[in-house]
Design a binder for these strands. Structure first.
Length: 875
DNA sequence: CGATTCACG
DNA sequence: ACGTACGTGAATCGG
């Protein structure tokens, strides 16, 4: 057994150091992590390099110490600990525990005193001692056996103070550091010292006299000077200061050196803490075996047949599929559990099993699932109607925190502290190596997923209730999932010949433009490559460079528009880009997505993805079908009703976001404008430019419209200047005038940012939440972005709440009225239905009625509608 | 696989 | 002084 090596760490000082040395990072749950991160990297490095056999982290306990008895102002005037740091201390403690390092604090004593006491004891036992702190005061403890490490910038950079190093640096012994502080004081601890004496003078005096006491014994022999006067006047203070600066090495601690043995980290615990904090780089760098981590045993069976008695009133069910394309992919199997009995059933076996099918369709049999919409769509493919979904883990997790990334069960489970389910990649492999394992492995994996859902259901439900989000989840998102599932399964019919004709037409136009462009450029190149295009435009043709990107010249549309007058080629490129986009994304891309059995596209609405609460749409994205330009808008002619004699009916909210803003800000002016049913951009122009309605020019209205957009996005003068092509100063002027006209809006914007800083998140009308950890960042960009998000998310998110509620009400109303009409699509502020001709009259009445009263605001909601033979004609 | 561009609200 | 409008998805290029 070699010599013991003891590492003593000053917890408070290191946490402070790390906090101020590093930018205010935060993980995606909104917990700040910079101090914990700095602490961790420092620990990792020092443990690696020093390989200690014993360790302890000491913390200050409470506010008062024995030093306050002799000097009440000790550490007075100190700024209180920033809340962003306070919230990190529990994590630092967790981290230390995971490392299996002892931590200790003692009433009335500071971390210094605990460290000093233990260092002395250890030195007496002939141990090597290393003290780590961010505070140079500790250097007074340096001896031949005790080295003091002081962290410098970045936490992992360390200065090692041995007595020799101190001698070299200051010309003093370690104990004289105390005298130095007695003379010069310490502003951060509010130790006064002798006024006018700084580091230089203190060192000079100590070199001559040796100590504070010796100095005062010989003070009469000192030559008369200002300095001498000050020293004489402040004798008591100097002695008190020295006393305060002295680390007490006889603290009555009830912990012994034997208690401090360091066995090395508990790798599993440490990984858990790192995962909770999202320390991805550390997890990757660590050579801990993540995959081989022991998972708890799970008792499960692979069954060929399921009998009624195996199917309980409440169960977790998971449908395992090949990939995310649930409208077309292979189905692998089903996992079931009620927490006691767990079993796996292959898809083939399920299709033969009436008991299971009946149970799945039985409304009274409650199912706990994750992504029930996918399960519904899959079962729909085999003629089974899923009913009785009582819990959806994917949606619950999303409501608790929309920033949770990943929609697979392993990822979500881990977020909530459950790790007994493996990543899909571990089971199947990835890329070309993807393969379905043998049934015992697959069966266990799927069973574990079901078990994870079962285990997390109470935890997530509790969390939802705690956040007052249970209603949002249970009454809005959960029923919506089923409605979206039906919309997806129904699909929308696409007329391929229409697309093909357009494609042929486009092909000719694109070829003609290509020729023109090559001709004007004097060479052939890839017009689709911004890099090659940049070379042609800005080098060969020497057009002026307006904007640059990270990688080179920007060739974005707004840049090209500014260059239109410079060269004929620019317009051709703009036209080429427009047509090429239509061709590749909307003609070829769309055709690829049409299912040949029914000539329909079946998009997937992502319900647990956006940070604001909106839906998104993929494969194909039906929420960005062209409309603004006529050429593109024609794409909509290919979207047709699925039955002969039916009609497409589209209804959209007018200005829903500004109405939401009027409601939330309660701005008198804005509310009035909507209550009077005015054109909001015209009204804004009237108020900002102080003109009457008749005198609002089209330019004024255009400017007002841009300002309104800006307000919704979380305005910035730069953004507005870009959109209106004016100077930043002019834009700032506009904003100023707007906020004067709408003071309620200004107040709302200020309040919401304040609230976000206080709570760490913002909310919508239905209590949807978005965390904004960057809102307190000292990085201007990150903070500004978070501030704009704080202003925008309640608006965009509340509008999303409203239309989601409208979809639920509309679905119920269609059923109530016994109509055949079906909801097909949602595009953020509009709903698209298909309907038999004879129901159009009814829809004209009920759709606006339902949508306008989905949620009552302080201003009316307004809905416009249109219908026609194709989506294009519903305008 | 990141960057760029452009389609939508 | 800092350098941006908010929220998405798909196609394409090129390392």
């Amino acid at each position: 057994m070699g010599k013991d090596k003891l590492l003593l760490l000053d917890g408070n000082s290191l946490a402070y150091r790390a906090f101020f040395a590093l930018p205010l990072l935060a993980n995606d749950s909104g917990i700040h992590t910079n101090a914990v991160y700095g602490f961790t990297t420092m620990l990792q490095k020092i443990v690696e390099e020093e390989k200690p056999t014993k360790m302890l982290v000491a913390f200050d306990a409470g506010k008062t110490t024995f030093r306050h008895e002799s000097y009440g102002e000790y550490k007075g005037g100190r700024q209180k600990t920033p809340p962003e740091l306070s919230e990190q201390f529990p994590y630092i403690r967790k981290l230390i525990d995971a490392y299996q390092i002892k931590r200790y604090e003692k009433e009335l004593y500071e971390a210094d005193d605990i460290i000093g006491t233990l260092a002395k004891q250890a030195a007496n036992e002939q141990m090597d001692v290393i003290i780590v702190s961010g505070d140079k005061d500790l250097t007074q403890l340096a001896t031949d056996q005790v080295t003091v490490y002081i962290t410098r910038k970045g936490m992992t950079d360390i200065e090692k103070y041995t007595p020799a190093h101190i001698e070299e640096k200051y010309g003093l012994s370690p104990l004289q550091i105390i005298d130095m502080k007695g003379l010069m004081g310490d502003a951060s601890d509010n130790i006064p010292g002798v006024p006018g004496v700084g580091e230089k003078t203190a060192i000079k005096l100590l070199k001559e006299y040796g100590s504070v006491e010796a100095l005062y014994e010989q003070i009469e022999e000192m030559k008369k000077s200002k300095m001498k006067e000050k020293l004489v006047d402040n004798e008591e203070q100097a002695k008190l200061s020295k006393q305060l600066a002295t680390i007490f090495t006889e603290a009555p601690i009830d912990i012994t050196l034997e208690d401090l043995n360091y066995p090395g980290p508990n790798e599993e615990e440490l990984l858990n803490v790192w995962q909770e904090l999202s320390f991805k780089s550390l997890i990757e760098k660590s050579d801990f075996q993540v995959e081989e981590k022991e998972t708890a045993e799970l008792d499960f069976n692979i069954v060929q047949e399921v009998t009624e008695d195996m199917l309980k009133d409440v169960m977790a069910v998971h449908v395992e599929i090949e990939n995310e394309h649930y409208h077309s992919c292979r189905v692998l199997g089903f996992g079931f559990t009620n927490g006691e009995e767990t079993f796996y059933l292959s898809f083939e076996a399920m299709q033969q099993n009436e008991a299971v099918k009946n149970w799945l369709e039985d409304e009274t049999k409650k199912k706990y699932m994750s992504d029930s919409k996918a399960a519904q769509a899959i079962l729909n493919r085999v003629g089974v109607t899923l009913r009785g979904v009582e819990f959806d883990m994917l949606l619950a997790a999303y409501i608790v925190n929309p920033a949770i990334s990943g929609d697979d069960i392993a990822t979500i489970s881990k977020e909530f502290g459950y790790s007994d389910v493996q990543a899909n990649e571990t089971i199947y492999g990835k890329g070309a190596k993807w393969t379905v394992p043998e049934e015992t492995v697959l069966g266990e994996h799927v069973s574990r997923k079901a078990y994870a859902i079962w285990s997390l259901q109470p935890i997530l439900e509790e969390k939802l209730r705690e956040n007052e989000q249970f209603e949002l989840y249970y009454d809005l998102e959960l029923p919506l999932a089923s409605i979206l599932g039906s919309m997806e399964s129904k699909g929308i019919k696409v007329d391929i010949p229409t697309l093909e004709n357009m494609g042929a037409d486009l092909e000719k136009k694109i070829a003609a433009l290509e020729t023109e462009i090559y001709d004007l450029a004097g060479e052939e190149f890839n017009i689709n490559s911004p890099k090659q295009l940049g070379v042609i435009l800005f080098e060969k043709l020497a057009l002026p460079v307006v904007k640059k990107t990270k990688t080179g010249y920007s060739t974005a549309a707004d840049v090209l528009e500014k260059l239109q007058s410079e060269h004929k080629i620019v317009q051709f490129i703009l036209d080429y880009r427009q047509l090429a986009k239509l061709q590749s994304t909307y003609i070829e891309g769309l055709i690829k997505e049409v299912h040949c059995e029914d000539s329909k596209v079946h998009t997937r609405f992502q319900q647990a993805l956006t940070s604001t609460g909106r839906l998104s749409s993929t494969d194909p994205n039906l929420q960005n079908i062209p409309i603004r330009l006529e050429e593109g808008r024609k794409i909509r002619q290919a979207f047709v009703p699925s039955e002969e004699g039916w009609i497409l009916f589209a209804a959209d909210y007018s200005q829903i976001e500004l109405r939401v803003l009027a409601h939330m800000s309660n701005d008198e002016n804005l509310v009035d404008a909507f209550n009077k049913g005015m054109d909001i951009h015209t009204r804004t122009a009237m108020d900002v430019f102080h003109v009457s309605e008749e005198d609002v020019t089209s330019n004024m209205r255009r400017a007002a419209k841009a300002v309104n957009f800006g307000i919704v996005y979380g305005i910035s003068d730069y953004g507005l200047s870009q959109s209106l092509n004016i100077t930043r100063k002019e834009a700032a002027d506009f904003i100023e005038k707007y906020l004067q006209s709408f003071p309620g809006v200004k107040e709302y914007m200020d309040t919401i940012v304040q609230e976000a800083k206080l709570k760490g998140y913002v909310t919508t009308i239905l209590n949807r939440r978005r965390y904004l950890p960057d809102i307190t960042s000292r990085n201007f960009n990150l903070r500004s972005f978070a501030e704009r998000t704080a202003m925008n998310t309640p608006i965009q998110g509340s509008a999303a709440d409203i239309i989601k509620k409208a979809m639920i009400d509309m679905d119920a109303r269609l059923k109530e009225e016994g109509l055949k009409s079906k909801l097909l699509l949602q595009v953020h502020d509009e709903l698209i239905f298909e309907a038999p001709q004879e129901e159009i009259e009814i829809l004209e009445r009920i759709v606006p009625e339902v949508m306008e009263h989905a949620i009552e605001l302080a201003v009316p909601l307004k809905v416009d509608f249109n219908y026609g033979q194709t989506w294009y004609d519903a305008k």
